[in-house]
């Protein structure tokens, strides 16, 4: 072996340059700022000229900001946010059962054969279509709400887990077997970690779908939560509260997604799929 070859070979491959999305420059926000300014002018000066009643339906951004300040200071907004997050978290704990189920379905053909048809029938039913039946089953309240959220979460997690297991490199399983791994070790020490990145993708999608289902579920049968907040504000014609609620829902969903992604990148630094 030549000296050069040795050196070359022993130099670790340089870590890929970190691909953190660069902070978008202020220029990227130009259109957004213009739109906000236009909205402000429109709802403060133009709309009241034509019809003051209509102007109420389109609260100015400045009004929304002030309302948001009040709602936060009074603890009302954090309270509703917390109530919604609690429901989301509760449903998520149940939806995590989709991970072992998905691994079983992905790994054992017989399990897949039996359960997949059932899955195919249930999956296309939107979670919201379950609302009437779930109200009859559980009554109005947290359980019913969480059931709807659970339905929104469980299928993305299940489908992604099954696909993740199917995509595990069979050579890895062979390598483990030839190193003496039995069936249980193959499942827990090879299939599960190898499938983890895509399971995380499923969890991200599931949390997102669950969050959407949550708001809808709260519109119908809850006495707190962000969905309740905006529906309640509608009856009072407080469009500013509605907008604050909507923005909070969007923001919370975004934070949830980014948080899970960050956590996954930190916990699974080896995953190329997550490093994207």
């Amino acid at each position: 072996m030549t000296v050069e070859a040795t050196c070359q070979d022993l130099t670790p491959r340089r870590l890929a340059p970190s691909r953190r999305p660069r902070c978008p420059s202020l220029r990227g926000y130009a259109l957004l700022a213009a739109a906000l300014a236009l909205w402000e002018v429109l709802s403060r000066f133009i709309l009241p000229l034509s019809n003051p009643q209509v102007a109420i339906l389109m609260p100015a951004p400045s009004v929304v900001v002030v309302t948001a300040g009040h709602l936060i200071a009074s603890g009302e907004l954090p309270g509703h946010l917390l109530a919604s997050l609690k429901r989301e978290a509760g449903a998520f704990l149940f939806a995590l059962a989709a991970v072992p189920l998905g691994i079983a379905m992905g790994y054992w053909r017989a399990v897949h054969e039996q359960l997949y048809p059932l899955l195919e029938v249930l999956r296309p039913i939107p979670p919201l279509a379950w609302i009437p039946l779930s109200i009859l089953w559980f009554g109005l309240g947290d359980t019913q709400n969480q059931f709807i959220i659970f339905l929104g979460m469980v299928f993305p997690i299940l489908i992604n887990t099954i696909a993740a297991v199917h995509h595990v490199d069979p050579t890895l399983i062979r390598a483990a077997r030839s190193l003496g791994a039995g069936e249980r070790a193959v499942l827990s020490r090879v299939v599960l970690p190898a499938a983890l990145p895509q399971i995380v993708t499923g969890i991200r999608v599931g949390l997102g779908v669950g969050w959407m289902a949550l708001v809808a579920a709260e519109l119908v049968g809850a006495s707190d939560g962000l969905g309740f907040l905006i529906n309640d504000a509608r009856s009072l014609l407080r469009t500013d509260i509605i907008v604050v609620g909507m923005l909070t829902i969007g923001l919370a969903g975004l934070v949830l997604d980014v948080g899970v992604r960050r956590l996954a990148v930190r916990l699974l630094p080896w995953s190329a799929a997550l490093a994207r």
């Binding site: 030839s178 970690p193 995953s271």
Partner: peptide, 19 residues
């Protein structure tokens, strides 16, 4: 009768566990 450590194998694509 099946795979086992007494016949360990080196694969072309390494088959290392990335985690």
């Amino acid at each position: 009768r099946g795979p086992g450590w007494e016949r360990s194998i080196i694969f072309q694509d390494y088959a290392l566990f990335p985690w």
